[in-house]
Computed example of a mutant assay.
Amino acid sequence: MASEDDYTAEPFLPEDPEKATLTALRRAAAGCQGCPLYRDATQTVFGAGKATAHVMLVGEQPGDQEDRQGRPFVGPAGKLLDRALAEAGIDPDDTYVTNAVKHFKFTQAEPKKRRIHKAPSLREMTACAPWLAAELALVEPELIVVLGATAGKALLGSSFKVTQVRGTVLEEEIHGRPERLVPTVHPSSVLRADDREAAFQGLVSDLKVAARVLA
């Protein structure tokens, strides 16, 4: 079995990913075995949305429902995100949604027990980075909305702390391209919050910053 240092999706990308279509990338990603996460996941969950979208939303990894359905942000967190986007004035139809890691990582006490989300490791995020880089190159978003700490670390490095920069506009070079980013919390954290309404309004407030950038 390959060591963690050998984890990479690179061999599974199309020959020239920047000239591929999103459909071709999605098809290629379905066969990705760049790290061991593919073994237990139901399927690869690639990004979804228009190639001409002005906003790219980047989360952590698929959840249970996303893994079963093969589409990102279709579970409870995705529904909450759609509501927050609408309240902030961002058209969901003008977004491309994806995750830093394309396979569901989980723990499970017994085969028929509930699958519990487990955060991906830095090596797993790094292994999956070529897919995200290819998505960015094709979509060329005007703005990236970073959803949570894991997505932030995947894009901006291991020192990223969402609590320090949420709701601000960052200008950084990502995969060799200048990008504007607005970090915020992952919508799943809103669902876990003691004061869910306050947490939701905090997410909306951050997304309104993104909306003003796009205006």
Rank of each mutant, 00 (worst) to 15 (best):
A2S: 09
E4R: 12
D5F: 08
Y7T: 00
T8L: 05
A9K: 00
P11S: 02
E18I: 09
E18V: 10
K19N: 14
T21R: 00
L22I: 04
L25H: 01
A29L: 15
A30I: 02
G34W: 11
R39A: 15
R39C: 05
D40S: 15
D40Q: 15
A41V: 04
T42V: 13
V45G: 12
G47H: 09
A48E: 12
A51D: 13
V55D: 07
M56D: 11
G59Q: 05
E60I: 08
E60C: 12
G63K: 06
D64M: 08
D64H: 13
Q65L: 14
E66S: 12
R68Q: 11
G70W: 06
P72S: 08
F73M: 13
G75V: 06
A77H: 10
A77Q: 05
G78M: 01
K79I: 10
L80Q: 06
L85T: 04
D93I: 00
V97I: 09
A100N: 08
V101N: 02
K102F: 10
F106Q: 08
T107D: 08
Q108N: 11
A109I: 03
A109S: 09
P111L: 01
K112V: 06
K112D: 13
K113C: 01
R114K: 14
R115G: 11
I116C: 05
H117E: 10
H117C: 00
H117V: 09
S121G: 06
S121L: 07
R123G: 00
A127M: 07
L132R: 04
A134Y: 07
E135Q: 13
L136W: 13
I144F: 08
V145P: 03
A149E: 15
A149Y: 03
G152V: 03
A154G: 13
L155W: 11
V165D: 04
L170K: 05
L170V: 03
E171Q: 14
E172F: 04
E173F: 11
E173T: 15
I174L: 15
P178C: 07
R180F: 07
H186L: 02
P187W: 02
S189Q: 10
V190I: 10
L191W: 04
R192V: 02
R196D: 00
R196E: 14
Q201H: 14
L203E: 03
V204Q: 12
A210I: 07
R212N: 09
L214R: 01
L214P: 06
A215R: 15
